[in-house]
Amino acid sequence: MDKLVAQFPKQIADAILIASRSELSFDKNKTFNNVVICGMGGSGIGGKMVAQLFGDQAKLPIVLVQNYQIPAFVDDSTLVIASSYSGNTEETLSVTKQADEKGATIVGVSSGGELIQFCKKNEYEFIKLPGGNPPRSMLAFSAVQLIHILSVAGVIDKNALDLIAKARHFLNDELIHVKNQAKALANHIYEKQSIFYTNSSLEFVAIRARQQINENSKQLCWHHVIPEMNHNELVGWAGGNEHFAPVFFVSQFLNNRNKTRTKLSQEIIQNKCHSILSIEGRGKTKIEESLYFIHIIDWASLFLADKRGVDPVEVKVIDYLKRTLDKK
C-alpha cells in the first residue's frame, strides 16, 4: 500500500493519459438537465470530490447516489456516471440498470467486471482503469475520469484537467512537508478517538480521512463540517475529554465568517481535550490544496497502521460481508 500512496502524483499523470486516449462523444442534439454520479467507498469518494471541487462552475446540478435506488427525476435528459473500480459493486450496478430503464445516458468508469460488460452489451461508453489494486488507492484514476467526462459533456470547463495536472507537480514539490504533516497526524490520533473537521465545501477531505483511517488503520473515527457543526455537535463537546483527538483541515480559501467560526471552534474544543491538530492548506488553487490534504491523509493512515501493527491492505470483514450477501 505504501507504494500506491507514494505513486499518487504519478497516478494523476497516468489517469490524465487514459482520459486523453478515451474517445468519448455525446450526441450534439442531446441536452442534459442534470448529472448523477453513482459509486461506493473508494470509488464513491471521487464523485464527492469532483462534485464539490467543480460545483461552483458546473452548469448543471450534480447529484451523488450511494445506495440502491436511482432518484425519481432521472430520465432521458440525465447523464449518469457509474463509477465502480471492481465493476461488481452491487449498489452501483442496481442504479445503473435502473438508469438504463429510464433512458438516461450512461458512462461507466471501471477496471472491468459486470459494469464494463453491461456497458458493452448496451452500447454505452466507458473508460477502463488499470485493475488489481484496492479501490481506495485508485482515487486519482477515478476522479480524473469523472472530471474528464463532465468536461467533454460540457458540464464543467474544458480546461479542468489542466488544473489537476498542475497539482501533480505541486504534490511532488511538497512531498517532504506532506510526510512530516502525515507523521504529526498519525501521532496525534494514535490510541485516541479521532474527529475530523473542515469546512462544508471540502467535506470530501474529511470523508477521505475517515475512510482511510477506517480501512487502512482499522480504527473508528467520525467527521463533521463547519458551519453545520456549530449548530449541534459543538454542544456535544461539553462531554469532551483527553481521549478525543480533533483534527482541523483549514482551507486558505475560507470566507471571513468561516475563518472566524473555525478559530472559535478550535478555542472551544481545545478546552475540552488534551490538544487539537490544525493542518493548514497549501497550494495556489483549491484543487492543489485539496490533493495536498488527501496526500497527507493517505500517508498518515499508513503511518498509523504501522504504529498499531495492522495490515493496511486487509479488509476481511468487508470480504465476509460481500460473501454473506451473495448467499442471501
Rank of each mutant, 00 (worst) to 15 (best):
M1Y: 07
L4Y: 11
V5T: 14
A13Q: 13
I16L: 11
I18V: 15
S20W: 03
V36W: 08
G39S: 12
G39D: 11
S43P: 09
K59M: 06
Q69D: 13
F73V: 12
N88S: 11
S94Q: 05
V95R: 03
K102H: 13
K102E: 04
A104M: 08
T105L: 02
L129N: 10
P135H: 10
S137L: 00
H148N: 14
G154P: 04
V155T: 12
I156H: 03
D157M: 07
D157L: 03
N159F: 04
A167Y: 07
A167S: 15
F170G: 10
D173A: 15
I176W: 01
I176Y: 02
K179F: 03
N180C: 06
K183P: 08
N187L: 10
T198L: 06
N199H: 13
E203Y: 03
A209V: 11
A209D: 06
I213N: 04
C221E: 05
H223E: 13
H224Y: 11
H231W: 00
N271D: 15
S278W: 03
S278F: 01
E289R: 12
Y292D: 08
I296E: 03
I297K: 06
I297V: 12
W299Q: 12
S301W: 05
K307Y: 05
V317A: 13
K322T: 07
R323C: 08
T324Y: 12
T324D: 12
